[in-house]
Amino acid sequence: MKKITIAMMLMLSGSVFCQVSVGTAPQETNKWTFGGGIGLGFGSNSAFYLQASPRVGYRLTDDLEGGVVGSVSWQTSNSYKSTMFGVGPFVNYYFARSFYVGANLQHYFINYRDKFYDYKVNGEETALYLGGGYMQRIGGNSFMQLGLMYNVLWKEQSSAFSSGLVPNIGFVVGL
């Protein structure tokens, strides 16, 4: 039964992707893009990390997009608890429909509590990420983005972040 179900699902998905439209394709009139990323992590000492970063963009040209991105993350372990919210503008330039370079300015609001020492910090930090990456089409006008960004404002002594280098994986619909 399991083999029959798998075969039926494969044939059904194949028929969905094999449809061909006849005639000219209509011009796209919607220039809005939507996407973002989700992160999840586990570690020692009961560490848990959850992050979401939705984004809304607008295609200024076929290769240039600008918009707003938000970020929220929640971290907890046996020794600390942290919540962080961020928001700011971004701009991406796409070339060869496979690569992109971009800039992202984020202003973060940080709430940190050390459970062991009963130490609390409420602060703010601004980050300017510059970088780029590779895009893989996953269907129609939807893409998965794999990239690497660097926070050029990062300073080891005064930052809430452990590094200025940030790998990212995200999805974009509407390009």
Rank of each mutant, 00 (worst) to 15 (best):
Q157C: 00
G43N: 07
E124W: 04
G147E: 01
N122P: 00
M84T: 15
V22E: 09
G67A: 10
T33K: 11
V172E: 04
V152H: 01
V121A: 06
I4P: 01
K3E: 12
V56E: 04
G139P: 05
G35Y: 07
G139S: 01
S159H: 02
R113S: 11
A25W: 09
Q19E: 10
Y129I: 03
N104Y: 12
L64I: 15
Q19W: 08
G14D: 08
I4D: 12
S82L: 14
A127Q: 05
E125I: 03
Y129S: 03
S71F: 13
E125G: 05
F161V: 02
S71Q: 12
V68R: 11
P167F: 04
K155L: 00
N151P: 01
G39P: 08
Y108M: 08
Y112R: 09
N30Y: 15
N168I: 02
I169A: 02
V172M: 08
T61H: 09
L146C: 00
G164E: 02
I6V: 14
L60S: 07
S163P: 00
A160P: 01
R59W: 06
A103S: 13
S82F: 12
T61M: 09
F171S: 02
V72I: 14
M11E: 04
F90S: 07
A47P: 05
P26Y: 11
W32A: 10
W74I: 10
Y112P: 03
R113D: 06
G147L: 02
Q145A: 01
S53K: 12
T24C: 07
I110E: 05
I138W: 00
Y134M: 01
S159M: 02
W74Q: 13
N122T: 05
D118G: 03
V68D: 10
S82P: 08
G131V: 02
G23T: 13
M11I: 11
Y108C: 08
M11G: 08
K120Y: 04
L146K: 00
R97Q: 14
A160E: 01
G37C: 07
V87A: 14
G67T: 13
G102I: 14
S159I: 02
G66D: 09
G37Q: 09
S82K: 15
P26V: 10
T24D: 12
S142A: 04
E156P: 00
A52T: 11
T33I: 10
Y108R: 11
M149D: 00
V72G: 10
R137N: 06
V101D: 11
A96L: 14
L10V: 14
L12M: 13
S162L: 01
Y93C: 07
A127D: 02
N30K: 12
N141F: 03
E156H: 03
F171M: 05
S44P: 05
V152F: 01
F17R: 08
T76N: 15
S79P: 11
P54G: 07
Y93A: 09
P54M: 10
S142G: 02
V101G: 13
Q27P: 04
N122C: 01
N141H: 03
A7Q: 06
G36P: 04
E124M: 07
A47M: 13
T126E: 03
P167W: 05
G123D: 05
F85W: 12
F90A: 07
P26M: 10
F34W: 12
S46M: 11
V121T: 07
P167R: 04
G43I: 14
S142W: 00
W74H: 15
S15Y: 11
G66V: 15
C18G: 13
